[in-house]
Nucleic acid binder design. Structure first.
Lengths: 151, 151
DNA sequence: TCCCTGTCGATGCAATTGCATCTATATGGA
DNA sequence: TCCATATAGATGCAATTGCATCGACAGGGA
């Protein structure tokens, strides 16, 4: 049976987590928008595809990695393809599916987004906490993951 | 001048923060939805208004406290009023404004949401980390706030 | 008093998101 | 083989959100 009433420490930590995470996302998104760059979700997808390399990824694999619903991935990929940042290839052994691969233009866009996004991260996190504190934070957050997770 | 390239620790902590916070919000929202209750934003507003008591709050004060844009507050208050959870009163010394006050039905709704929301917090945070760890987490998150903040 | 500028709150419209469902293909069992 | 069920991905429609702007009033200076 699960406890139904949270401790005061849990409530405080929860409130901070909610507030701070939303503030930081907002800051990072603002910086991108101001630079005339697409939103963070685009970066996430381009990043995953860049890591996947020439082999590419199936859309359903992406759905698992970025925190986006299936229809969100479908629509985002449509936009990325329309902008020439990714390409869709048929896959031989499954007629329903496709392979999505990042294009050179996509890699370039990823780099440009990172220029701004990375600077935001440095300013919002790197300047506020020491390397040790950041590791502590990451460790604690890791233990809150759902599902409890593979390291 | 601000650093433009984040440390690996900063990137890891950032990624965890983004992922975990979104997962937890999603879990909490799902629980509310499944219980047939309104979303978290409703709770935030009802909570602030409950704390403000009979004096109520001006909408622009709410805008500052909950992380919602001005038009978001305006529209949410319209819905809450339509549902009888809050009431809007004219304010004598400022003809543009209004005072928003929670109603008994609003207090009741807040309690009902808390029954589910509090249980989510207990399950998602209280069960995963000790009281000390929660305090550490809250402390670290607090130092990431924007603006750097009044304690 | 009369503007000019600023703030409060609301809203029209476009873009985005969520939900439900659809089509197409795969897979396994009778 | 044929059917029932499951999975991949797309999409119509409704609800929500963001952006820009509006109307109403406040506050100050000339």
């Amino acid at each position: 049976m699960t406890k139904t009433s949270p401790s005061s420490q849990a409530v405080t930590a929860w409130a901070r987590l909610m507030r701070v995470s939303r503030q930081l996302v907002e800051k990072a998104e603002d910086a991108l928008k101001q630079a005339g760059l697409p939103p963070l979700a685009w970066y996430d997808v381009l990043h995953e595809l860049a890591e996947a390399g020439e082999a590419g990824l199936r859309p359903f694999e992406l759905t698992g990695r970025v925190l986006l619903a299936q229809y969100g991935v479908s629509r985002l990929l449509a936009r990325l393809e329309a902008d020439g940042l990714v390409e869709k290839l048929p896959v031989s052994d499954d007629g329903r599916g496709q392979i999505v691969r990042i294009t050179p233009a996509g890699r370039d866009m990823r780099r440009r987004i990172w220029g701004v996004y990375g600077a935001s991260i440095a300013g919002l996190m790197g300047e506020k906490l020491s390397a040790e504190e950041l590791e502590t934070l990451a460790g604690l957050l890791g233990r809150l993951r759902h599902p409890p997770a593979r390291e």
